[in-house]
Simulated scan of single mutants.
Amino acid sequence: MLAIAAAVLFFIAFLINAADIATNDTFTSTNFMLIGLTVLALHVGGVGTGWSGRGRRR
């Protein structure tokens, strides 16, 4: 789920950059890219996967 959120943030950053949309300092394409990278790092780190670190017990 976090990977999908990261992809959406990257797409928004691409649209802002490609369309040359004038935004304020908060909603720049660089900020969206950095938030997307943070969400992607959380996804790769295993946050929000729902897996237990212990594994199954027999």
Rank of each mutant, 00 (worst) to 15 (best):
A22F: 12
N24L: 08
A41L: 13
L9S: 07
A18Y: 14
F27S: 11
A19S: 08
S29W: 11
A22L: 15
H43R: 14
A13V: 02
T28C: 01
A19T: 13
A18W: 13
I21A: 11
N24Y: 10
D25Q: 09
G45P: 08
H43E: 15
L15Q: 08
T28S: 07
M33A: 12
D25N: 05
I35E: 10
T30K: 14
D25L: 07
L15N: 04
G45H: 10
A22H: 15
F27Y: 14
L42W: 11
T23K: 03
A19D: 08
A19K: 10
I12P: 01
L9K: 07
S29H: 06
D25R: 08
I21K: 07
T23M: 12
N24Q: 09
I16K: 06
F27T: 12
D25A: 08
I21H: 05
N24E: 09
N31E: 02
M33R: 07
T23C: 06
N24D: 11
L42G: 15
L37F: 12
T28F: 01
L34Y: 13
N24K: 03
V39M: 15
T30R: 14
D25S: 10
I21T: 11
L9W: 03
N31D: 02
D20L: 04
V44H: 09
A22W: 11
I16E: 04
L34P: 00
F32M: 00
N31K: 02
A18Q: 13
D25Y: 05
L9A: 10
N24W: 11
A41V: 14
L40Y: 11
A41I: 13
F27V: 12
A41M: 13
V39W: 08
L42N: 10
G36V: 04
F14C: 03
H43L: 14
I16A: 03
L34D: 04
T30V: 15
F32N: 00
V44G: 05
F14G: 02
L40F: 12
D25P: 06
T30P: 01
L42Q: 12
D20F: 05
L9F: 08
D25W: 10
L37T: 08
M33D: 00
F14E: 02
I16Y: 02
L40K: 06
T23V: 11
N24T: 10
L42H: 06
T26V: 12
A19E: 08
